[in-house]
Structure formats: structure tokens, C-alpha cells
Design a protein around this nucleic acid. Structure first.
Length: 252
DNA sequence: AAATATGCCAACCGCCGAGGA
DNA sequence: GTCCTCGGCGGTTGGCATATT
């Protein structure tokens, strides 16, 4: 079968909404499936990346704190470029973010070191790092997570509803910042959600592309879609939940 | 004010391992 | 045991924003 050419490049807000909606519906595991079901002309990989690095509700934005910097330095000296592993110890930070951070800041630091070395004594840039730890640093494990209890950041389940977060992102135009995470359940009507999507499709001039596949279920050959409430709750700790009585969505 | 350099970040690419057929 | 698909990971690149000259 001739696969349609996958879309590449920056994601539109409409695509983000679409992806977030379907991730909340089906969970964040089967990315190929999600890519198909959602009607997005993206690869599963691309969807996963977008979710993990940008749309995930638990994401922290903004500058690294000194504690985070210290932790990155320490973990990198321990594990090297195992960014995903390091990221697991920094809740809300992605491997990509840490990788980028390391590249820019450490490159700069290395340059500075080189300058310093020229004037002081010869030493590796890491000896510099270790002195950084020993000095003024309290316990580096400021976020104690045991190996067993290690929560994979990529698992679905953040504090902020996707719709809420995307709205915030739209309001703040990309830079989410350290906004207060949603502490209470928020209720959206179907109309609100779809209005958002419709607005976006108008803005982006999507030329009447359907947001949803004609019948969603034709993409769901898999019995896992029919789970008990309990199973579903476990799998999707946070999702849109349709209230039949007043036709609203809960995000919880 | 314009040109250039640098910083930052999103996204792609290719490789690898796990799991299923 | 082999092949295939998919997800995850690390490296890299491209483009936009900001700073500097």
C-alpha cells in the first residue's frame, strides 16, 4: 500500500489539540495507532516526540533551577549522555531539554574553562564540576526517587488537563512558563472543546480537512479499547470524560 | 539601523532492543 | 530462530530570537 507522505516540520496548534485529545482518549503508548486514529498526517514517532517534549501535562518550562543544574552535572558525570535516564530524575524535564541544556551550557562552560586553564593550572573540565558539587551544595538528591519507585516521566498522568494546558499555551503563545498547575478538576463543555478546534482550523486554513476520522471505531480493531472502567482508569489517569447528562467533558 | 554572532529549542534521523508473528 | 514492527534513545540540524558589533 502506498503510504501517504507524512507531514513534517513544526506542529500547528490544531495538530497539538488533536494529538492531545487522542492521547487522552487512548493513552500514550501506541503511537502508530494514535497517529492513524487521530487523522494526523504524522508518523507515530513524531507524535510521541511532540507529546513527550511539548504537550505532556507534567512538563516544567523555564530556566533550570540551581538544584536541577547541580543534579544534571552530577548525573551526567555518573551516567554520561544517558539523557533519558537523567531526565527521569528531573520530574518535568525532558531528555531533549536536558540534552539541549547540556550542549549549550556545558559548551560555554568548557570554553570558559579553557580560558581559565590558560591562566590557572591544567585540569579537566570535570574536576571543575566536582568542585562545583562539593562547594555550597546541600544534598544533591533534592528529589529523592528510589530506583523501584522511579516514575517514568513519559507515562501519562500529569496535574494539568491537556485542554487546559493547551489553552494556556495558546494564551501565552508557546512559552508556558511556570504556570500554576491545575489543582482542581475543571469542566469543559463539548462545545468549548470543539469550538477551540474549529477556531484553530479556521486560523490555520485547513481547507476542510476533517478533524476526526469519519468513524473513529473503524480504526480500532483491537479489543483493548473495551476495557472495564477500572482498567481504563488505571491506564488513563487523566482523560476527557463525557458526562452524558449535561453533555460536558471532565478533565480529571 | 543593519549585519553578524550566539543562544535556544523543536524536530528529524538513524540505530537499537523488545516483543510478537 | 528469524523477521518485522514499533517505541525509545542519543545525536544532529535548522530556524527563530536575542545580543553584540
Amino acid at each position: 500500500m502506498a503510504q501517504e507522505e507524512a507531514r513534517k516540520g513544526p506542529w500547528s496548534e490544531q495538530e497539538d489539540l488533536q494529538l492531545a485529545f487522542y492521547v487522552n482518549l487512548f493513552g500514550d503508548r501506541r503511537w502508530d495507532f494514535l497517529a492513524k486514529v487521530s487523522g494526523l498526517k504524522r508518523t507515530g514517532k513524531s507524535c510521541r516526540l511532540r507529546w513527550v517534549n511539548y504537550l505532556h501535562p507534567g512538563l516544567k518550562r523555564g530556566k533550570m533551577t540551581p538544584q536541577e543544574e547541580r543534579l544534571i552535572l552530577e548525573l551526567h558525570s555518573k551516567w554520561g549522555n544517558r539523557w533519558s535516564r537523567i531526565a527521569r530524575k528531573l520530574p518535568g524535564r525532558t531528555d531533549n531539554e536536558i540534552k539541549n541544556y547540556w550542549r549549550t551550557h556545558m559548551r560555554k562552560k568548557a570554553q570558559d574553562d579553557r580560558k581559565n586553564k590558560a591562566s590557572i593550572s591544567p585540569s579537566s573540565s570535570f574536576s571543575n564540576c566536582s568542585s562545583y558539587f562539593s562547594s555550597n551544595s546541600p544534598d544533591v538528591e533534592f528529589m529523592p526517587i528510589t530506583e523501584n519507585n522511579e516514575r517514568n516521566f513519559y507515562d501519562t498522568g500529569g496535574l494539568l488537563g491537556v485542554h487546559e494546558q493547551i489553552s494556556l499555551q495558546n494564551a501565552g503563545k508557546k512559552k508556558v512558563g511556570d504556570q500554576e498547575k491545575g489543582k482542581s478538576m475543571k469542566v469543559y463543555s463539548m462545545d468549548e472543546i470543539w469550538k477551540d478546534i474549529e477556531l484553530l482550523s479556521e486560523e490555520n486554513d485547513t481547507k476542510n480537512k476533517p478533524i476526526l476520522p469519519s468513524t473513529m471505531w473503524e480504526y480500532c480493531p483491537d479489543s483493548t479499547l473495551w476495557m472495564t472502567d477500572e482498567e481504563e482508569t488505571k491506564m488513563f489517569p487523566q482523560f476527557y470524560c463525557l458526562d452524558n447528562q449535561d453533555n460536558t467533558f471532565f478533565i480529571g
